[in-house]
Amino acid sequence: MTSKKPKLILVHEPEKACFDRLVADGHAPERAAEIASYLAQSTDLAPEFDALAGACLARGLSFAPVALDEAARLLDGEDPGTTLVWTLTDGVAYFRGGAAPALARLGGFRTVGADETLFALCQDKFRSGAVLGALGLPAPPAGLARDGQWLVEPPVSAAGWFVKPNRLGAKIGIWPDSRCGDLGHALELSRRVFAAYRDDVVVQPYVAGRNVRASFLGLTPENGVEALGVAFVDSGSDFQTMADSLALYGDTGEAAKAAGRYAEPELVAVADSQPAADAGIRAIAERLMGGLCLRDVFSIDLRVEADDTVHLIEFEVCPGLPCFDFRAYCRSQWGLGLADAIAETAANRMTGPDRRF
């Protein structure tokens, strides 16, 4: 009797499924499209599913991309002993990808990535910031507002404040005036965010510095913080707006390319000019891996000042795998294209011990 071939199942929430659900829930179509755009990695990775299948086959695995709404039904027919689940898209509010690792846990499947508790935590920036502060990490303190009312008043800040949605892609500021100099304007921004997206806002002291993305893919289960890729992401602007984000990814990104409006930010290794900051970021990542059990695949967004001061902005358990920065990381760190990096990671997880608690 031959054994069943190991299988990688990649669970993802498509943009259109999210858009249709949000519109049915009463969101304006334009706003629903903006919200759903955060799932653009599903759109961007779909053309490479054949390449992923080939890379998996070369390593003795079969491959199946599964839309989130079909995941429960399809997982019910799989063998937990030979099936690995990798969740591509996260979410517990506007997006629902956080259901996938919970389903995998319920069915006894091995998974790539963090456990389901971190899928929920990283999507709520106010709560995750509180946890990061409790771990002694340099995350800016925050206030929280809903539709023009303070739920938690923000700290005093001589440099002004930065206002961002709490449960969306919250490192971005939505509008160019998201950095503001008075708290009255911060409350006005909270009204605008609530009217457009039904979300609270996090209001943090503005922190200066260059934007940094730290990317991690553990090609083997033994890989640690030494495999972290740490790069300045220089786009020419202080922070990313919704319009900036729409021009980079998914169908809107393709339209921006066709119109000549697409420009990838420049990636420059932090260690080349600020080795002390690079060391500090690796220490932060090590603390996150130990204190929060981040593992396998994740990213961290930070700000680094000229004097090597590091500010931790957020962590993500589902980094944008097909995005320019993660592809660049796979090439520089592992010498692999994205499909081979994903397949190699999956193959190594299938042959190693199950490290879940």
Rank of each mutant, 00 (worst) to 15 (best):
A46H: 08
V23E: 09
R21K: 12
G113I: 00
I35G: 03
L75V: 06
L121A: 01
W86T: 02
F49T: 06
V112D: 06
F119A: 02
H27N: 12
V85S: 01
F95P: 11
D90H: 08
G91K: 05
D76F: 11
L118V: 05
I35R: 10
A58K: 13
T89H: 00
C122A: 08
D115K: 13
L61E: 03
L106I: 11
I9K: 04
V66D: 09
E13K: 02
R21P: 04
A64W: 12
R59N: 06
Y94F: 14
A67D: 15
G91A: 03
V92R: 03
L106N: 06
V66I: 13
C18N: 12
T43S: 09
A28F: 10
L52W: 04
L135W: 08
L135H: 06
A104D: 09
L52R: 09
R21G: 01
A28W: 08
E48A: 10
V131E: 10
R31A: 15
G77H: 07
L10G: 05
G81S: 00
F119T: 04
A71C: 13
A100K: 03
F95A: 10
C18W: 08
A33H: 01
E13R: 00
A100G: 08
L68G: 09
G81Y: 02
G129A: 04
L22D: 01
K16E: 15
G97E: 00
S37K: 04
S42P: 02
A72K: 11
V92N: 07
R73P: 11
A28E: 14
P29H: 11
F126W: 08
A17W: 08
Y38N: 15
P101G: 09
G133C: 05
S128V: 02
D25C: 12
Y38D: 15
A71D: 07
D20H: 05
E48I: 03
T89K: 00
L22T: 07
D90M: 06
A40C: 03
L121T: 06
P101A: 10
G54M: 13
E70D: 15
Q41W: 01
G97Q: 02
A134L: 12
E116V: 13
E30I: 01
L135G: 07
V92F: 11
K16Q: 15
A134D: 13
L75I: 04
A24R: 12
P80K: 00
S37D: 12
A71H: 02
R73G: 14
E15G: 07
K16P: 11
L61N: 01
E30P: 10
T82R: 13
V85K: 06
G107W: 00
L118T: 00
F95W: 12
V85Y: 01
G60I: 15
Y94M: 08
G98M: 07
